[in-house]
Structures are given as structure tokens and as C-alpha cells.
Design a protein around this nucleic acid. Structure first.
Lengths: 214, 214
DNA sequence: CGTATTGGTGAGCGACACTATCCAAATGCC
DNA sequence: GGCATTTGGATAGTGTCGCTCACCAATACG
């Protein structure tokens, strides 16, 4: 398969594919000679994943490169690779430690994790980018004077834990080992919009049930 | 309160505030004379909401203007205003109707809504931007050969319905009438990152429990 | 043999959220 | 009253980012 074929089969323009190659999001094809390179189905799958990350997940190109680097790192075990890849995904700004809202948010988040009994998350808290994202998000809410507290959020945490269990069950039953890392990354990115849309739909539905459509 | 005071109290630069005024995201202050305009706490609150929409929610300026227009539309009843504002929020591209993945996704989404018994959502399906977002998201998954079907997703739908019920309960108990529309918009935007972070944290936690940290 | 196509590269584009600079009118301090 | 300072308002510029275009010599194809 040559570049033009890859383009046709994926629906991505050759110019964009070249750009991805340049940016290291797509491994180079097998160079046959100065004007021909051969691509395979692996490239096609990788290209789809890249598009998913960038277009659906709005992941910046630089972050995508990092994530994919972890996915490909053969020197690591599967679990670590998966962790590293997911770990690299979030792209939230560093919290401003001088902001009192951030400090308060940190305390409240820790209380929430304690309530939920998420011990691992508490231990990893200082390191985890996801934890940082949560603190930033909560600080944002507090700055707008939202009554956000651990007791109020705990049920949402339980709901998300239930979702997470389903996610992992799904991963175990539906992916062969070699694809698990890739699939986990794709899920993390592609599932998000689905969940969000479901949430909003549920809000519309419940709102209509309570107050009518008018 | 003059422009400079508004800037100090909100932490937003005067240049940016001027930009928002120009873009119609912030109503003009009460003009006292050619060089002085007076702003009040309403402006401060609105400014915070604008920042939340744009910075946290990544809502494009044009969309934010539209959403805020609905929030302010005194000619509508509360429920309609809320609906209109939330409907204007999503900013997903139009689905490509020629794409077979989109058609298949539409069928599967409808089956899901039937399974869940979300009748209102099914009726409103052709109109709702949220429904459209869901179809686009599902089509994206299918294009990557994800085994996505209604039965698999139904439990997630139930979880989101549970979350939606909590959302509305919260809104009813914590906001006075005049602020409900504004608060609903803020929640829709600010809650999203919190939920997402909780979801990822839950995945980390559950993954650690199953496979260890290594 | 000649046209078309290949992969590679540097520069350019369009969208977007600001931001820097000016400006004339008005204020505030002495 | 005088004069530097500050005000709101307008215009043009900046930085970032994900592409996209134009062009190149080398090669493939009919």
C-alpha cells in the first residue's frame, strides 16, 4: 500500500498523512527506493487512532505523539505501557498553587477520595495528572461559588466507579492482548463524547419528564 | 465599579474585558459620560460565567454569545430558556449523511433509546443537537471497528440517567429561580471536567485493584 | 520516451482568543 | 487653572495550532 492508497482507504489527505509522518505520529513506511514507501494495515489502524485522538479527543499533536510513544514502547510491560499512555493523555494547565481556591479544592478532593475509599488514588495523588485535572476542575467550580463538597460528589464517584468496572470488563473480554493498550487509549478518548452525550440526553429526558416539554 | 475595578475583582485583564464587551458576551456598563461606565455585581457574575464557558468548557466565543443570548431572553419562560441555552451548547460538526457508519450509528442509537425507554429523546431525536453529537460519536467508534451496540451501552445510559436525576435535584435545592438558568449552564460546562476526571480516577483505581501497580 | 506520481520539505493559511497600541475626552491632584 | 493620568473605545497585530499548498528531484508507468 502506498501513500495514496493509505489516503484513499483512510479518507485522510496525503498532505495530512505527510504531516503526521513528519510529526512522528505515524511510523515511516518501509522504504523501497527513493520514491516509494510501502504501508500496511498497521499503518492504517494507527492512522485511525491518530485521527481519533486529534479530531474526536482534541488531543494536541504533541500530546498524541507522547501517548503513542508509550503505546509503542516495547521495553515496558503491558500494564505499565497502558498506565503511561493514559497518564500522558490529560492536557490541563498546571494549577496555580498560589490560588486559595486550588488549595481548598485539593483538601476537598482528598476528602472525597477518602469517603470513596479510593486508597490507591490517594497514594498516587501528588503524581497523577488526572488527580491534578480534578483539582483544577473543582477549583474552577469553587471560584464560581459552587457548593461543591465531598459528600455531594461521592455518589457521582460511585457512579463513575461502576462505569470504570464496566470499562475494564469490556476491555478484558473484547480485546486480544496485543491490542489492549491501543484499545484502552481509544476508549479513553472515544468513549468520552459518548458518555457526555448520554449524560446530556438523560438530562433532557429527565427534565422533560419533570417539567414537560412546553 | 469601573472597568479597571471589574478587571481587578475578576482577575481578567481590561483588554480581555473590552474584547468580551465588543463581542457581546458582556452587556455594556451604564454609561455615565464619554469616559466612564459603571459596572455592577451582575457584570462580575456574568464575566465569571463567560470565563467558565470559554476557558473550562472550551466553548467558542460565537457559541457562548448564542448561549448567553438565550439565558438573557426575558421573553421566554424559564424552562424554555434553559432548554434553548443547553441546546446551543454542543459544538460538534454536522454528521456526513453519506457515511454508512453514520446511518448505522443512527439506527443503533435509536435502539438504545428504545431499550432505555427514553421516549422524549426519541421524539426529539431529529432536532436535538445532543442526539446528533451522540450519533457522531458512535459513528466514530464504529469507524474504528468498535463493537458498540445498544445492549452494551444501556447500562451506561442508566448510570447517566442516575447522574442526571442528581443534577436536577441539586439544581432544585440549591438555586433560586432567577439563577437556575445560569446555574444549569454553568453546571453543564463545569461539571463535565469533574465527571471526566472522576471517571479516569476510577479507572486508575480499579485497574490498580485488579492488576496491581507494578 | 514522456507524462504522471512518489515521498520529502519549507512556507503559508485560516481560525481563534486574545493583546498591544493609539486616541480623544474627562478626571484628579496640586 | 494646569497638566499628567486614566477612562472607554477602536484597530491592528500576536501566537498557536492543525493542517495545506507548492515545489523538488527521483522514479514508475503506459
Amino acid at each position: 500500500m502506498r501513500l495514496a492508497d493509505l489516503s484513499k482507504r483512510s479518507g485522510v489527505s496525503t498532505a495530512t498523512i505527510k504531516y503526521y509522518l513528519r510529526e512522528g505520529l505515524l511510523p515511516p513506511g518501509r522504504q523501497i527506493n527513493a520514491t516509494t514507501a510501502e504501508y500496511d494495515d498497521g499503518h492504517l489502524r494507527r492512522l485511525r487512532l491518530v485521527r481519533a485522538l486529534i479530531q474526536v479527543g482534541k488531543v494536541p499533536v504533541a500530546t498524541a505523539r507522547e501517548v503513542l510513544g508509550h503505546v509503542d514502547d516495547e521495553s515496558l510491560g503491558r500494564t505499565i505501557r497502558l498506565g503511561a499512555a493514559l497518564w500522558a493523555l490529560p492536557q490541563d494547565p498546571e494549577p496555580d498553587e498560589a490560588d486559595p481556591a486550588v488549595a481548598a479544592a485539593r483538601v476537598e478532593v482528598d476528602r472525597l477520595l477518602e469517603l470513596l475509599g479510593w486508597e490507591t488514588s490517594r497514594e498516587l495523588a501528588p503524581l497523577s495528572p488526572v488527580h491534578r485535572s480534578l483539582v483544577v476542575a473543582v477549583a474552577g467550580l469553587r471560584r464560581l461559588d459552587y457548593p461543591w463538597d465531598a459528600e455531594l460528589m461521592a455518589p457521582y464517584g460511585e457512579l463513575m466507579m461502576e462505569a470504570a468496572r464496566r470499562d475494564l470488563d469490556f476491555l478484558e473480554t473484547h480485546a486480544q492482548d496485543s491490542e489492549k493498550v491501543e484499545m484502552a487509549v481509544a476508549s479513553a478518548v472515544l468513549f468520552q463524547p459518548v458518555l457526555r452525550a448520554l449524560h446530556r440526553l438523560a438530562q433532557e429526558e429527565e427534565s422533560a419528564r419533570r417539567y414537560g416539554i412546553e
